[in-house]
């Protein structure tokens, strides 16, 4: 079992629905995005390609963020999900320097979207345990675990699937078990020649991108 994602850049239109859905699902404060879609350009006019690149934690098989963590807060589960045990984290930021994918975020203080006080929704979804510690995409581990406990299928049943994939309006994000050759994610990697970002770094990411 190795949870992973395949992101189809041919489908992605950079709408940021995954960005905002992730933010909502995880109750992230103002200024913190666990995922975002970069608006990239390659080449020079007129030979230029604009490309939308969803960025998030790659849940690497060899996650460079885990061994560097001095407190053991940064961990990897058997199923490949890399996560942070907030109560153990000192917020040193080392994991953010070790991560080549810019996937780690320090939540410094409580910061609300409107100056002053939180909205009722922000109040209700605030996560004090995350203040001062490193945070990151968890593949919506709670959804996945709750879903499995209810015998739902992550990647198939929305309630057991990471919110970005659930929300994506272009069907560009496929979540699944990369150890299962028959999973839609694995098939997509094989059929469309998906590649990870910066494979030369030896991190062996669990997020793949379809570019053509």
């Amino acid at each position: 079992m190795r949870w992973g994602m395949v992101i189809d850049l041919v489908r992605c239109v950079g709408c940021q629905t995954c960005t905002i859905a992730c933010k909502q699902e995880n109750g992230l404060p103002a200024g913190v995005l666990w995922r975002f879609v970069a608006d990239s350009e390659v080449g020079e006019y007129p030979d230029v390609r604009r490309l939308f690149l969803p960025m998030q934690c790659m849940h690497c098989v060899e996650p460079p963020c885990v061994p560097v963590c001095p407190t053991g807060a940064s961990q990897q589960r058997e199923d490949g999900i890399v996560w942070v045990e907030y109560d153990r984290c000192v917020g040193c930021g080392y994991c953010a320097m070790a991560c080549p994918y810019r996937a780690r975020h320090l939540i410094k203080d409580a910061s609300w979207h409107f100056p002053g006080q939180p909205t009722p929704a922000e109040q209700a979804t605030a996560q004090p345990a995350r203040r001062g510690v490193m945070t990151k995409c968890t593949f919506c581990v709670d959804r996945v675990d709750r879903g499995i406990a209810r015998e739902l299928r992550p990647g198939v049943d929305p309630e057991a699937t990471p919110m970005c994939a659930v929300a994506c309006i272009a069907g560009a994000i496929i979540f699944g078990d990369l150890d299962d050759a028959e999973s839609p994610a694995c098939k997509l990697i094989k059929e469309r020649g998906a590649v990870p970002l910066m494979p030369e770094l030896g991190t062996n990411p669990s997020v793949y991108y379809v570019t053509e």
Binding site: P67, C69, T71, R88, V90, G91, C92, M134
Partner: peptide, 17 residues
């Protein structure tokens, strides 16, 4: 650091960090 009072937690992972 984000949580200075937890500073001594940094001693925990001498084996890897």
């Amino acid at each position: 650091a984000g949580r200075p009072p937890r500073g001594l937690f940094v001693l925990r992972k001498i084996g890897t960090s």
